Deep mutational scan, measured.
Amino acid sequence: EEKRQVKQVAKEKLLEQSPNSKVQVRRVQKQGNTIRVELELRTNGKKENYTVEVERQGNTWTVKRITRT
């Protein structure tokens, strides 16, 4: 359940930055209360990979860091 929520948060964050792209989740890793989500962003056939680190704060998820990989 929490992985599902985190995927959603990570996707939304990337789509905010580039709204007309397609996002696909590649991998989800958990480390303590930080969850790392690896995503693939496609814009006009151009692929970019991103890693989004999401942290739990109380009962909400906040995006800590977005890295292009």
Score class of each variant (00 low, 15 high):
N59Y: 11
K47V: 13
Q57P: 02
R36D: 02
T34E: 04
N49A: 09
Q31Y: 15
A10Y: 01
E12S: 10
W61D: 00
E16C: 05
Y50S: 00
T67H: 08
E12G: 06
G45D: 08
R27W: 14
R56L: 11
N59A: 09
N59R: 06
T34I: 12
N44S: 10
E16I: 04
R65I: 06
T67Q: 08
P19F: 03
Q24T: 14
Q57T: 13
E40P: 00
V25P: 02
L41D: 01
E48R: 06
V28N: 01
N20S: 11
E12L: 06
R65L: 09
E40D: 04
V54G: 01
Q29P: 00
Q31V: 14
V28Q: 02
T67E: 09
E12F: 03
V52W: 01
K11C: 09
E55S: 08
I35C: 06
K11G: 03
I35R: 03
Q17N: 09
Q17Y: 13
V37I: 07
N49M: 14
R68I: 09
T67I: 13
G58W: 04
V23E: 00
K13S: 08
E40S: 10
T60F: 12
V52P: 00
Q5D: 09
K47N: 08
Q57W: 11
K11T: 11
E53C: 05
T67G: 04
R27C: 06
T43H: 12
E48M: 08
R26G: 06
K3Q: 14
K47C: 08
K11W: 05
R27P: 01
R65C: 06
N33H: 08
Q31N: 11
E38F: 15
V9A: 06
R42K: 08
T60G: 13
I66T: 03
I66K: 01
A10I: 14
S21I: 02
E53I: 14
E1P: 05
R42F: 15
E40F: 11
R56S: 05
E12Y: 03
W61I: 05
E2T: 10
Y50A: 04
L15K: 06
K3P: 04
Q17P: 01
S21E: 01
Y50W: 14
K7L: 15
P19C: 04
T43N: 11
K22E: 14
T62W: 14
V54W: 03
E38H: 14
V52Q: 00
T51Q: 07
E1K: 12
N20F: 06
T51D: 04
S18A: 10
K46L: 10
V9Q: 05
Q29L: 14
Q17A: 09
Q29T: 15
Q24G: 04
P19Q: 03
Q17L: 15
T43A: 10
K13P: 02
R27D: 05
I35G: 03
L39G: 02
K7E: 15
E48Q: 09
T67R: 09
V6F: 04
V23C: 05
R4W: 10
R36Y: 15
G45R: 06
G32V: 03
K22T: 14
K11D: 01
V25E: 01
Q31F: 14
G32L: 04
Q31C: 11
K22G: 05
E40H: 08
V9P: 01
E53M: 08
T67C: 08
Q8F: 04
K13N: 03
K3I: 15
Q5N: 08
Y50G: 00
V9C: 05
I66M: 06
V6E: 02
V9L: 14
I35F: 15
K7R: 11
V54R: 00
R27Q: 06
E1F: 04
V25S: 01
K30D: 11
E12Q: 13
Q31K: 11
L14D: 01
T34H: 07
G32C: 04
K22I: 13
N59M: 12
Q8G: 05
Q5M: 13
G32Q: 04
L14P: 01
V23T: 02
R68N: 11
L15Y: 05
P19E: 02
N49W: 14
V63Y: 01
V63W: 02
E16H: 05
Q8Y: 03
E38N: 07
E48S: 07
V23Y: 01
K30M: 15
T43K: 10
Q24P: 00
E38K: 09
E38G: 05
R65T: 13
K7V: 15
T67V: 12
R65G: 07
N59L: 09
L41E: 01
E1M: 06
K3N: 14
Y50Q: 00
V63K: 00
V63Q: 00
T62A: 13
P19H: 04
N44G: 10
N44Y: 10
G45V: 04
K64Q: 08
R56A: 06
L14S: 02
G45L: 06
R27M: 06
V37S: 00
V9R: 04
E53F: 13
S21H: 03
N49Y: 15
Y50R: 00
E1C: 09
E40Y: 11
K7G: 15
Q5F: 11
N49V: 13
W61G: 01
L15H: 04
E40M: 11
V25H: 02
L39V: 10
Q29H: 14
Q17C: 09
E16V: 04
L39S: 01
Q5T: 12
K30V: 15
V54T: 02
E12K: 12
N20L: 08
G58F: 07
W61C: 03
G45Y: 08
G58M: 05
V6S: 05
V23W: 03
E40T: 13
N59C: 05
Q29K: 09
R56V: 05
L15N: 02
V37A: 02
L41V: 13
S21K: 02
T43Y: 11
V54E: 00
R26I: 14
I35L: 09
V63P: 03
N49E: 09
V9Y: 06
E16Q: 10
R65E: 08
K22F: 14
E16M: 06
V9E: 02
V23H: 01
L15E: 04
R26Y: 07
E48N: 04
R65N: 10
K30Y: 15
E16A: 10
L14V: 08
R4M: 11
K3H: 14
A10F: 02
S21P: 02
K7D: 05
N33V: 06
V23I: 12
E53P: 00
N20E: 07
Q8T: 07
L15P: 01
N20Y: 05
S21Y: 03
N59G: 13
T43Q: 12
V52G: 00
E40K: 05
N59I: 07
R36I: 15
R26T: 12
V37K: 00
N33D: 12
V52L: 07
K3Y: 15
E1Q: 08
N44I: 07
N59F: 07
T34G: 07
E55C: 05
V28D: 01
V54D: 00
K47P: 06
E2L: 09
E55Y: 12
R4N: 09
K46P: 03
L39W: 01
E2P: 04
N20T: 08
T51N: 04
T69Y: 12
R68Q: 10
V37D: 00
L41I: 08
N33S: 11
V6G: 06
Q17F: 14
V52I: 09
T60N: 13
L15G: 02
R68L: 14
K3A: 14
K64N: 07
E2K: 03
Q24V: 14
K22H: 12
V63M: 01
K30R: 13
K46Y: 12
